[in-house]
Design a protein around this nucleic acid. Structure first.
Lengths: 342, 342
DNA sequence: AATGAGACAGCATACGTATGCGTAAAATGA
DNA sequence: TCATTTTACGCATACGTATGCTGTCTCATT
């Protein structure tokens, strides 16, 4: 139950070689003076006998690389993010990296502390999802030479790389879908207004409406939160037919599904006969036949792949410029938007 | 862009003190010889000026504690696990610990490699969810003195602690719900048969049926996988009324919701008029009015709290015996089970 | 046979911090 | 004022590994 912690020195002693030999025998990339096959065998046998396992911390202390990547998420309720996290972990593991995962604490002071914690562990890089960093934190990362890749959020700091879907374009698609369906009174339920995703989608949405000569009929804010989404939905739809939208864009599926439930079961509205609904993300829920939510697709796999590519590029060579990847959005048409009735 | 990596020695030089003083100034728990308030101020000022951040790796190398906990999950598709992971991360952070998260790779050989990886990073403890460990791995953990807590899975190895819901009792509740509703032909859709959760729930379910003099009408296996669940559901329900169940227990909500969709939209069955459905977990999805799934509740929060408690107890004192916590299951009655028609 | 190249192994040091021990100064008590 | 305790700080070493350098031995080349 103790921790006898067998070290490379122990292995060396048993194998009758020097500690350096052991180190080299376990080194994946033999640099200069290597080790003969015979002694390597001997060493590996000794190591196996003792149950030796190299200490990654001690190694990192010397090599200055931990092969640990900090991963900072705000929450996992939204399956889009759970999905992304799973893909990120798998991707990192595949490359021999490891994910030190943090969930965003509530207060902003704690955020600083959290990121500071991450940095103390000498992570090689940082991936954030749905999180913004204060400029002080950005500066800290820059000083430590830690590349940062943001998923699903952009920020004007020139240090940060990012991967997003074309949120503005996606917003346009959503508007197009509702207008084409013949909706006249068009509403919008936003997320948290501080989030670039929410803002950009809203911008694209209203821009497209304007381009088609239509004005936004009503607007509410769901804050990416289910309870507040319910309230927002009630506020917007608990009215006589002429006073409520006949089409609504909810800026992500997570909220959209909840909004649909409120409309159907709380207010007795039919979808899409009374109200057409468009979401964003194309989460698994959108494809459930019960919802059949028409939505703007974010290509999660591609997003994660891109994020990892950006990160690895910056891990392997220093001084690579930040890059902003914007992936195309696609409209997934299902049954929550009514067909045009000519 | 380089990594000048300011160290405690640099701070010491600037502050005009020794490196030990710096170390002690940053030590949370002053052990013996402490540092005066005056010099501490001086040191902190110097540290701030240089942007010093203690190197957690070097510290861990000495203290033999990393404050890192390995977290091993098999997948996050099922929101139950996403939820659990979020809670675990928050709980660890709150105690100043950090989660090194791994997702289960596909092949078993990779599992060994993965856990080996985890151990190389000298984690203080290990939490697994919905994962079993080979006896070799258990042995490795024991040798390193690493406490292991399994969430939602039990295993007969005497080293491991575990936290589960009373799956047998939960299975009984499910059976009771269907029988009380007057179901006569009762079916079961299992998960992956190697999983203790699935086996225990099934055992409790059939035991309760037997106790009430009822025999299982039909059985299929969903493997905790959506596609295979669809197939299983079709196989079981795509038959004339008398040849299919009028009540079914699906061993988790994740599969249950999918099964409901297949029944309703693929086969035109009404729930609960044609078929009553009971799930397990009480995921957020079960409470969606669209599904209103009667289900057996697993108290995720309590489960995570217990798991963390078990872990921390074993981190702080050595030699604590393994413990198995079994939390009570509760039936959440909604509308997917029909009322008894007397 | 002499020389050069190459392959292998060991020595020593560095990575950045924590901590036991020794000592000088300051505080305390009589 | 002196003896004694307390406080504050520095010295030196340890944690476990990687790696440049040096030295030895083998083998092929001329």
């Amino acid at each position: 139950m103790k921790r006898p912690n067998v070290t490379s020195v122990d292995v060396a002693r048993l194998a009758g070689v020097s500690q350096s030999a052991v180190s080299r025998a376990f080194s994946k990339v033999p640099t200069q003076s290597s080790v003969s096959d015979e002694t390597r065998k001997k060493i590996l046998r000794a190591a196996d006998e003792l149950g030796y396992r190299p200490n990654a911390l001690a190694r990192s202390l010397i090599t200055q690389r931990t092969r640990i990547v900090g991963v900072l998420f705000s929450y996992l309720d939204n399956p889009f993010y759970a999905n992304a996290l799973e893909l990120i972990c798998h991707g990192l593991q595949r490359q021999g990296y490891h994910a030190l995962v943090f969930m965003m604490p509530d207060t902003l002071a704690d955020v600083e502390a959290t990121v500071s914690d991450i940095l103390q562990y000498q992570v090689d890089g940082l991936i954030t999802a749905s999180v913004e960093l204060s400029s002080k934190l950005c500066e800290d990362c820059r000083e430590q030479g830690i590349p940062v890749v943001m998923l699903n959020r952009v920020q004007d700091n020139p240090l940060l790389s990012s991967v997003t879907t074309d949120n503005v374009g996606g917003g346009r698609l959503a508007a197009g879908a509702l207008v084409s369906a013949g909706c006249k009174r068009i509403g919008l339920i936003a997320g948290w207004e501080g989030a670039s995703t929410s803002r950009d989608r809203e911008f694209g949405f209203t821009a497209e409406l304007a381009a088609r000569g239509i004005e936004l009929f009503s607007r509410a804010v769901g804050h990416f939160d289910l309870v507040r989404t319910e309230e927002a939905t009630r506020e917007m739809f608990d009215r006589p037919a002429a006073a409520r939208p006949d089409g609504v864009f909810v800026v992500n599926d997570y909220m959209a599904v909840r909004a649909m439930d409120v409309m159907r079961f709380g207010l007795g509205l039919r979808i899409p006969q009374d109200v057409s609904v468009v979401g964003f993300d194309d989460t698994a829920m959108a494809d459930l036949p019960t919802y059949a939510l028409t939505t703007v697709r974010q290509p999660v796999r591609q997003m994660v792949d891109s994020a990892l590519r950006l990160l690895f590029e910056r891990l392997n060579q220093t001084g690579v410029e930040p890059e902003h990847v914007i992936l195309g959005a696609r409209l997934m048409e299902r049954e929550s938007v009514r067909n045009r009735t000519p």
